[in-house]
């Protein structure tokens, strides 16, 4: 408690000397949008932008017509990659799809075994939003089965609904405030492509620590 007071005392003392003023105050969201990368207001154009951004990021998008189609296409991915075990969380879309694969499914209930999660070939989650502007997927510890499920397995599979697509980052943040304001999940993450590093000679390598593959199923 003592150091807290000391630090505040020094801050207040320091701020007595006024700085050169910088007019304007905190920017409005409209001002932010005015300078940031432009995004069309048309849904189709936003969808095209999300596709283009995902391709550049090397995330894969799979469009599916309905739940049946989702299960068929997910099974194709299972066979292609030879999954032996997957992990998922309890959610409308994620759990039934995971269970339809006919593989052992680890469900991330509170207290699940993280060592077991490390042996799963894919983590299947839902999300809060998709961001056209940047190709990002917004997940939280509440919407995507905790913190590790979307990060520890080598393949992160997201099941999203098309209407979850939003235009830009300011919209995604506004939506977060509206949805959770006052009771936020303890983790909120914008995931923009599979895990990557450029730490060796600035050469891009995917799958540094997090998932090597990111697949987004859009229902």
């Amino acid at each position: 408690m003592n150091e807290r007071e000391n630090i505040f005392k020094r801050i207040r003392e320091a701020l007595k000397a006024p700085a050169h003023s910088l007019a304007g105050g905190l920017p409005t969201v409209a001002e932010q949008r005015g300078v940031m990368p432009a995004v069309s207001s048309e849904h189709e154009a936003q969808m095209a932008l999300f596709h283009a951004n995902s391709a550049e990021l090397r995330a894969h998008i799979v469009l599916v017509a309905d739940m049946r189609d989702l299960e068929t296409k997910m099974a194709a991915l299972r066979d292609e990659e030879g999954w032996k075990k997957v992990a998922a969380h309890v959610g409308d879309l994620s759990i039934t799809t995971a269970q339809s694969l006919g593989l052992p499914v680890l469900i991330t209930h509170p207290g699940f075994d993280k060592e077991e999660l490390a042996t799963c070939d894919a983590g299947i989650t839902e999300c809060d939003a998709l961001v056209a502007q940047t190709g990002s997927v917004l997940v939280t510890s509440r919407s995507a089965g905790g913190r590790a499920l979307s990060c520890l397995p080598p393949h992160h599979v997201i099941i999203a609904r098309r209407e979850q697509l939003v235009a830009d980052l300011p919209t995604a943040f506004e939506q977060l405030v509206q949805k959770y304001g006052g009771n936020y999940p303890s983790m909120i993450s914008f995931i923009t492509g599979p895990s990557r590093t450029g730490d060796i000679e600035r050469i891009l390598v995917l799958g540094a620590h997090g998932p090597k593959h990111l697949t987004i199923f859009m229902v």
């Binding site: 699940f112 905790g146 303890s186 914008f190 923009t192 997090g210």
Partner: peptide, 18 residues
């Protein structure tokens, strides 16, 4: 945008998996 931009507001909450 960097690959992961993550906000943390506390330890595991009662309704969270991990």
């Amino acid at each position: 945008l960097t690959c992961y931009n993550t906000m943390y507001g506390g330890p595991r909450q009662a309704d969270e998996a991990d």
